[in-house]
Amino acid sequence: MIPTAFDYVRARSVDEALAALTEHGEDAKLLAGGHSLLPIMKLRLAIPTVLIDIGGIPDLSYVRVEGDEVAVGAGTRLFEIERDEVVRAEVPLLSHVAGRVGDPQVRHRATLGGTVAHSDPASDVPTGLLALGGDVVVQGPAGRRSIPVTACWTGFFETDVAADEMVVEVRVPRTGSSGWGYEKFTRRENDWAIVAAAAVEGRVALANMAGTVVRAAATEEALARGASIAEAAALADQGTSPSSDMHADADYRRHLARLLTRRALETAAAA
């Protein structure tokens, strides 16, 4: 399968990438790791006429401790996040979810910015980030702004990132030794989640239970008022709208959300 023809622009800096985005407008797409974009271009579900390759921008790949947060550059590859000593010590849930994406070859290419911007409701890293809290930092012609992770994913493959902006960084609070849990239900180890649940510090996020990754609000409220893990997890699917497909019907997804939430909370509590 071969994508339709396009022009290729290599950006050497964020400014060059933004200038190219403004110049080419709607027809242009940023190319990071290409592991979501190229498959859909090969299927001709996306037909951009210009690709702006941001994969070679050197200063977009980093991990830094800044105060009580860890800042990770949008160009950082998922295998780097999985292995990074700082991420492992300061935000172990982030390291873990990065390591649960696809297979090693996929993690060698896929980037943090790409998985955030793609906004697939089944994706692991956004689920982890939604439970962790923090901000997605974007840059556009008007400068930088921060989008809280709770406002980043607005719909199925849609985000609050504007067409002339790009994700440059993700900032997550240091959770250090706080307990955390991540439960991903798949048929085969390298599949996408049928449902997944992330838990840390009383916050719970779910994958594939709606058009975006979502917080299990009823579970969080129950925990805050002192409910047991079992009682709180039984509410995990409240307010969600899972779909039915060949992998699972909606009722089964609701069951999985409750079960995986309980397991993730138990793992977090046992730490």
Partner: peptide, 24 residues
């Protein structure tokens, strides 16, 4: 991007070459 038959090493990392542009 599923079967890995096209795996090659690029700059020391295994990748699936059916999902990488030559330009990249």
């Amino acid at each position: 991007t599923s079967c890995g038959a096209c795996t090659v090493i690029v700059d020391g990392l295994s990748v699936k070459s059916c999902t990488v542009l030559t330009a990249q």
